[in-house]
């Protein structure tokens, strides 16, 4: 694809489902390229048809394996499926190893499946800012269902719930900390709880624990009338998958009932606005604060003033 293909042209090629064009648009969103901004805006205006499923849970709980099996099931029902697998960037180098694809190898040659790996790139909420654009792009390119896998390790890592129509929290036996993770704020965000690895004998205890916690915590799902189900499944045997697909469909139908759906769409839009504004603000701040930083840092280091006052001064100088 050389020389440089204008993003506007990529939009038209992505509309016909051309993989290379979809891939390049996501890269340009990820790079925050000014040239692509108009194209992404157009895509947003023309998107909005897909069902977005967020899948989160602690590392090793079986999310990627589940995404692969679930995708295969949805494909058999005729849905085109886009998968976005988000893994954390290293806080030290900023780089990342993205290994979720290994579990999804069987899907690679299916033209009705698109898989994209993404790193969080220092985003605190567990979602890269470009994840939201990638959802738009796949939606626009005709994927009926978009599955977003993110690592969930606690309260701050559950942004995915704010960007998806159906949120699935995955727990598994044998990790020791599954209950911990649920306590740390993942209980409320789930529309569907999954206990994976139910081929293991210790899975039953995890199932019972989660059900118990759900009864203790009555106000669970964000949709008041939705009773959050707990689905036990095994990606090795396939047990439980029919039930999972059924619960997803139920939740989708439930959430498309006029009022809850509007509420969910409104909260997704509000989150989107917040997240985009934050990104813009951080970018603007990074650029405009550059020339003040050194001197203010020095003053802080010499304890001429306190962090709060100096940060305020920096903000005022940079952003007016």
């Amino acid at each position: 694809m050389s020389p440089y293909v204008p993003s506007g042209e990529l939009v038209e090629r992505a509309a016909t489902g051309e993989t290379a064009a979809i891939g390049r648009l996501i890269s340009r969103a990820e790079a925050n390229m000014a040239e692509a901004r108009g194209a992404l805006a157009e895509i947003y205006l023309r998107a909005g048809r897909s069902h977005v499923i967020g899948i989160t849970g602690v590392p090793g709980s079986g999310k990627s394996t589940l995404v692969a099996s679930l995708t295969a099931k949805l494909r058999r029902k005729g849905s085109k499926v886009g998968v976005i697998a988000v893994d954390p960037s290293s806080p030290y180098s900023g780089g990342a190893i993205l290994g979720d694809r290994i579990r999804m190898s069987d899907l690679v040659m299916d033209p009705g499946v698109y898989i994209r790996s993404m790193a969080t790139h220092g985003s605190v909420g567990g979602l890269a800012h470009a994840t939201l654009s990638a959802i738009d792009i796949l939606d626009f390119a005709g994927f009926d269902t978009i599955i977003v896998e993110t690592v969930g390790v606690g309260q701050d890592e559950v942004e995915i719930a704010k960007a998806s129509h159906t949120t699935i929290v995955v727990s598994a036996p044998g990790l020791g900390d599954e209950i911990q993770a649920i306590k740390a704020g993942m209980l409320e965000i789930a529309d569907i709880h999954v206990v994976s690895k139910c081929d293991r004998s210790d899975a039953n205890k995890t199932l019972v624990d989660i059900k118990q916690m759900l009864t203790l915590d009555a106000a669970t799902s964000r949709l008041p009338a939705w009773r959050t189900p707990v689905v036990g499944l095994s990606s090795y045997t396939g047990d439980g998958y029919p039930e999972l697909v059924e619960e997803i469909e139920k939740h989708r139908a439930f959430a498309s009932g006029v009022k809850p759906s509007a509420a969910r769409e409104a909260s997704i839009a509000s989150f989107r606005l917040q997240k985009t504004a934050e990104t813009l603000l951080m970018d603007r701040f990074a650029t405009s604060s550059a020339r003040f930083r050194k001197s203010i840092t020095e003053r802080l280091q010499k304890r001429e003033s306190d962090p709060y006052s100096l940060a305020n001064e920096l903000l005022t100088l940079s952003l007016g």
Partner: peptide
């Protein structure tokens, strides 16, 4: 990764 790249 340690050099800051995203490695799939």
């Amino acid at each position: 990764r340690d050099a800051g790249m995203d490695v799939i």
